[in-house]
Amino acid sequence: MATANTRALDRRELCRAVLADRGDMLVVAGLGAPAWDITAVGDCPENLPLWGGMGAAAMIGLGLSIAQPRRTVLVITGDGEMLMGLGSLATIAVKRPPNLAILVQDNEHYGETGMQETATRYGVDLVAIARGAGFARTMLVTSADQVAPLREAIHAGAGPLFAVAKVDAASLPLVLPPRDGAYLQARMREAVLGPEAHHQL
């Protein structure tokens, strides 16, 4: 059995490194810790932290990446959330959006509900599943020296990327984003489309 703790990264340090100098990158974060993580790094209109829709994050990323092909779209989510949307890996691999990257922060636990173990704790290999679905670019990040190459790969925009980073299962202080979903949507649309966003017909 893989032991996460011997090689685990700090999830917020990872987020901070990946999002450094992010340019006009758009970020969708799965519900729970990934949403708190991107908010801890710095809340902004180009972030969509999710409060629900478990299993949706990657597909939100697909719709956004198709709509905005010139921007990098990064989905940051957890292993539990990704496991609930495994089918979307097939859907995305077939569609092959060049500007979409998915980063799973894998702590091998359901962090918001009492730290129950997920399937990845028992060896389910998300990278192998993504590769099997047809992702040509995949990464498994288990050490700090792999974080810079991960960041480069996310920003490269050379075809859909699927990466898993093994992160520490420690619960960090909550840093909550705004809870009003209409606001979160409207601010990202305005950041992308300008004031016209509110007059689209």
Partner: peptide, 19 residues
């Protein structure tokens, strides 16, 4: 899609980007 719920998520992503 592999399942219809993916489409609901995709519609949100599309609208976020103006599609």
């Amino acid at each position: 899609l592999t399942t219809e719920e993916e489409g609901i998520a995709m519609l949100l992503g599309a609208w976020l980007g103006g599609d």
